[in-house]
Design a protein around this nucleic acid. Structure first.
Lengths: 336, 336
DNA sequence: AGTAGCATTGCAAGCGTATACATTTTTCGA
DNA sequence: TCGAAAAATGTATACGCTTGCAATGCTACT
């Protein structure tokens, strides 16, 4: 079987008895072409199964219509939702998402080189720890770049994230109102800006009331099993917290399991547990975990619109956007 | 600020004092070029930050190196894992994944037209119900297409899926060995081939022993809440099952919650619950759900290697590959 | 009718690379 | 050392599209 060549604009032009340029114009929004010939051309195109070759168009216009997504944080409980949102928003804006997975530094560099090779018009990064190197690469090539959710100090790129200071205050107030006294904060990543934002604001808020304080901060604890173990360890201490704030719902659920099935700790009477992320399981009757609901949808949309506007205005100016997250009170915190 | 043009192969050629063709060769694996000049060219390229323009290469070679992923089944509990696996495997093979999300028929068609415009070299579809239309489109354009996990009767494309017949037999044998008698099967989609495969094989297996049978099949039930409600409804019937096989872990967990927290049904003594998917929560101590572990990793890898080999051999011959899934016995089925 | 002004169309030159073919250089055996 | 074969390089063209510019067709006004 001989692979038949795909029809091109010249074929359509021949059939419609017009010039190739006119065919191009027929498929270019807002181009100078009469309704009559456009009609004629579209008919011919349909007959030939013609689709403009975007690769050629990209070459000619020297912009690919591609947006690179560097996705590293696959463990995020809402990874699928986020990626879906990104892809859909990008598509809706008339671009196409090219997804690269990367964890190691080398693979990040490789991914970025690939992006450059593919002449992507912009890049979105979803990683716990974006590297400064990549923003430099983008800068050198004049490619706008937006970080979703996590930034790194000193990185030269736009960031869309939640307002962790406000979150910290919300938690602080909720804790104060209910007269809890001793707070422990548990995080997977000690350098996360979300973590430090919450932690700082929480500390400041509770410092206004005497007798309430953050008694410990544990980092490097990540996931259900680790949470289960963490609460066992914590309960072996002399001074036990009566509030645990956890920067991951999974970890919080592990803690809860430890409380209920192993240690017999009464939640929320003796211990208040607050997670982050509002994964589906948190809402299940078995768990009923209080948590922070992050507006992923908005984060994602904002990320994309920010990027696209940068692409269209050719702007490389870094922006810093913060959206609000909401504390959801469920069974793991006392009722007022 | 004037946007400076990206350096091209001619610039490199000038700097290295060779022809543009040589530069091209330096970046083409296995091309006829001496080590010395290659070295010289690579040095010049590095100095100019040169990266071959893949768009131009694509145009010239008339193959884009792009693989389209049509992703519809975002609700799948392992959606992120699957997409990650696809992207990584595709990248590893030297291609780039372009991801499109689609639910409605129109958006599927639109996505496919976009794929054609972008001259993708192949397409992978992850959807509960792939449309025959899209395989036709691909066929017409000579683009290989592989379906992951779910096929549709009469569709003309390669499929990589699990061997649901074997799964059905495994469940059947486990049920027989433990002297359970009355089986109910719950599925979200009545037309799923995985569902019917399991169901048929299960029916056949248990039919070998007198007194054991499938007493009901419920379809259209999907998710935790629906499962919770389903068990309540089931328990209002006169004849109650003592085995529930569920084609989704989430639904199974809802059922479990209903049993334990609402109806007080003893699991596994009075009721055996088996899910499908082995999501993380199924392994948690709170749930300890018996389930079918689907080898997503292998499915994904097989899907990609199948597609790539089709791309490379220009083959449009549909293949049908089945991988084995394993029954994992946990606390929701009697110990032998 | 004549013509200025605008809308439409055609022409042709890129966009950056790959590659067939021609030409030059190198290799290696006799 | 010479010459044929092999390797390396250069030349020129194609890939399919966009777009500046020139040419043409049309409108409406005097």
């Amino acid at each position: 079987m001989t692979t038949k060549r795909r029809n091109n604009s010249q074929d359509v032009a021949d059939l419609a008895r017009v010039s190739q340029a006119s065919v191009s114009r027929a498929f270019t929004l807002g181009a100078s072409i009469s309704a009559k010939t456009k009609m004629k051309i579209l008919a011919a195109a349909a007959k030939l199964d013609y689709q403009p070759n975007i690769i050629a168009r990209s070459l000619s216009k020297s912009q690919s219509g591609l947006v690179g997504i560097l996705f590293a944080n696959w463990d995020h409980p809402k990874a699928a939702e986020i990626l879906k949102g990104l892809c859909e928003a990008i598509t809706e804006k008339g671009f196409k998402p090219v997804v690269q997975s990367a964890n190691t530094t080398e693979s990040v560099d490789k991914a970025f080189n690939d992006f450059l090779s593919y002449q992507v018009d912009g890049v979105i990064v979803f990683s716990m720890s974006p590297s400064a190197n990549m923003s430099a690469l983008c800068f050198r090539s004049n490619i706008p770049i937006v970080l979703l959710n996590h930034s790194t100090p000193g990185i030269n790129a736009s960031v869309v994230t939640i307002d962790s200071t406000k979150v910290g205050r919300q938690i602080g107030n909720a804790v104060l109102e209910r007269c809890y006294k001793r707070i422990t904060i548990i995080s997977s990543d000690a350098h996360s800006q979300v973590f430090s934002g919450i932690s700082d604001a929480l500390a400041e808020t509770v410092s206004q009331a005497a007798g309430t304080e953050i008694i410990s901060q544990l980092t490097g604890i990540h996931g259900y099993e680790a949470g289960f173990q963490a609460i066992i360890d914590l309960w072996a201490e002399v001074i036990k917290p009566d509030v645990i704030v956890c920067t991951s719902d999974y970890t919080a659920l592990g803690i809860l399991a430890g409380c209920r099935h192993k240690l017999g700790i009464r939640v929320p009477e003796d211990l208040c547990v607050i997670g982050l992320g509002d994964i589906p399981a948190s809402g299940w009757k078995d768990h009923d975990l209080s948590t922070i609901k992050i507006p992923h949808d908005e984060l994602v949309k904002k990320t994309v619109t920010t990027l696209i506007s940068k692409i269209e205005t050719q702007s490389m100016e870094p922006e810093n956007l913060k959206l609000e997250a909401k504390l959801i009170l469920r069974g793991t915190i006392k009722n007022l």
